[in-house]
Amino acid sequence: MGESIVITSGKGGVGKTTTTANIGTALALMGQKVCLIDTDIGLRNLDVVLGLENRIIFNLIDVIEGRCKLQSALVKDKRFECLHLLPAAQTSDKNEISPESITQLVDELKPDYDFILIDCPAGIEQGYKNAVAGADKAIVISTPEKSSIRDADRIIGLLEQEELENPPYLIINRIRKHMVDSGDMLSVDEIVSTLSIELLGIILDDEDVIRSSHHGVPVAFQPDTKASISYRNIARRILGEQVPLMSFDEEKGFMTKVKKLLGMK
């Protein structure tokens, strides 16, 4: 029996969809059976980030309204057998489905998968309610911006009223080390202290993330970028491993090490 996790943020554009795609990919890389559900009806993106846009035949609405079977709407990933996507409809809107129908859908998927990741739309209206209904756990994404933290705080408050197994987990996205150092961006500690929920991971602002979503290949595939390591660490933490937070510091070059040895720096 799998567990369902909703990925939400309140604010738009903080990286819900990218995070869903990458955590899904990272979990699949570790051999888990994963199903991603895009509940952002009318503004679907998850298929694009995964590079599966061309393979969509049926969608979430088709399944809920009984126009097709659940199995035939699932899109298999190009790279993995064990990663599936249930795409959102592009032509309907969020009010056409009810939280109950999503719950039913997720319950139907649970026996076949280890993880079901639900990509939530921005906002706290119907779309959010639909997405959260089917979830056992929740991950809240925030960037180190004040507005994003405010919205994350609001969402956490709303999630606390839901019947979730645990309090929501936090992922802080797009951290810029030099800005944190210069005091122009909130630090991880400040954000965690404000939101007071468990930190699941941090992701540095990385051009590779944008580059890979442009090519429709989640960054988690790459073996060595900071972002991909962050996503994999998050996946390992979801599976229950204890993984320390990645340090921000740049790798020191050979010459700096020598200089440090000589006491010049």
Binding site: R150, D151, D153, R154, I156, G157, L158, E160, S196
Partner: peptide, 8 residues
């Protein structure tokens, strides 16, 4: 005994 969050 709780955190009063944004909007609450």
């Amino acid at each position: 005994m709780k955190t009063i969050r944004s909007g609450q």
